[in-house]
Design a binder for these strands. Structure first.
Lengths: 230, 230
DNA sequence: GTCTATACCCGGATAGAC
DNA sequence: GTCTATCCGGGTATAGAC
């Protein structure tokens, strides 16, 4: 019955990551104590510090193991589009789908914690915590560069600055879309149809409508009072 | 020289609120200690507990004093629209402007802390903290009811569920719009033009484009793999 | 009514035994 | 690799000064 090499039970570390991810979603980073995490993971308090070094480093690792994979898939989807197009300009809707659709697919995966993670990620973009923001910016640098470049090429008539802002707005909409699938939000009691299956087409319509909207006109004079006029 | 009634120096309480608001924006709720707040406000540690009862109650009061006024203005703007229309259906763009434009105007006020507050509010919609969410939901109940009703009337051909979701998406976009005016976000280094004056038209174009987008089609079969096809 | 000093318990981090 | 003991800083409650 002796197996040649029993894999050296790489358990504790992963159990801590899973427990932390779930608890962070439910309570937030700060309200989740290391004692909560380790007790849920069946580990000792000091195990977090041993395996990760600090609570902050644990948070970072929770994101890293998921985000790296998500952004890899996003880049792969974009590269597939570009290969299929063979040099021709891409359709903006495809690009948007490669970025946001991939994320929503992960959010739809309730079996392996993808949904849990995306809820966490969505609200973390605006985290005040400096090290979290710094880390996210680094993790996203390449993907943003590539997707923005693709959109610039797909929408040559739209000023780049405008595309940049609209991409930013789209990320906000997605963040709230994911958060909104979980009740207990501002619209609690209003949503009759929170079917995750339908979220993707709903969000995609909205995002593309916003991305393709007529360009804004900037009036040189202050526009104060513009709303008051009938 | 004896004045009739010297107003009994209602200072400490307000100084604490101002200090808390500023520190919450910079560090977040949890990372801001009561000792930081009271020392910045020139007050004793126990003053928070005396004036507000707890840190949570202080957070709540920071929001209440600003949010009540913002939502009052929103409702006033909506009522003005309805009075001017005299029973005729409202233009969706006007409704959107009454809600989001009013908020952005507050965000543009850097003199009296409006900007500071809106940054804080934007990221708080998705707070995991249960009591904060609960409180926001109550503060927003009436405004949401009224604005959604107005949009239902203005867009009779759009399913209400769809309007609801799109309103939710719009709030996400606005939240990120405000957060994006402060550098140090994901897009740090990308924005060349973060002029707050231009943010309003930019965001409005996007929101209206999304709101008026063609309705999504829900396929009955699972759409898995739809993106992979060329 | 307003404010202060202080004591309490909980949470994160670390050292060192095993 | 894991656990125990301990330290320091955070929120909170209270007693009492003004």
């Amino acid at each position: 019955m002796s197996q040649p090499v029993r894999p050296p039970a790489p358990e504790t570390r992963d159990r801590i990551l899973d427990a932390a991810e779930a608890l962070f979603v439910e309570h937030g980073f700060e309200a989740t104590s290391m004692r909560m995490i380790t007790s849920q993971a069946g580990a000792n308090i000091a195990a977090v510090n041993y395996h990760f070094g600090s609570k902050d480093a644990l948070i970072q690792e929770v994101f890293r193991r998921r985000l790296t994979e998500l952004n890899r898939q996003r880049l792969a989807a974009l590269e597939r589009l570009q290969a299929d197009a063979g040099g021709a300009p891409l359709k903006p809707s495809r690009i948007v789908d490669a970025f946001f659709g991939t994320a929503l697919e992960l959010a739809a995966d309730t079996e392996h914690g993808g949904h849990t993670f995306m809820r966490l990620l969505g609200r973390t973009y605006t985290e005040p915590n400096a090290f979290v923001r710094q880390f996210l910016a680094e993790e996203y640098a390449e993907v943003l560069e590539r997707f923005l470049g693709a959109l610039y090429g797909a929408l040559p008539d739209v000023p780049r600055e405008e595309i940049l802002w609209r991409f930013h707005f789209m990320m906000g909409a997605m963040s709230y879309a994911i958060a909104g699938t979980d009740g207990l939000q501002l619209f609690a009691g209003h949503f009759d149809d929170a079917d995750p299956q339908r979220l993707m087409p709903r969000l995609m319509s909205f995002l593309l409508g916003g991305l393709r909207a007529p360009l804004p006109e900037f009036s040189e004079v202050a526009r104060k009072g513009g709303r008051e006029a009938a």
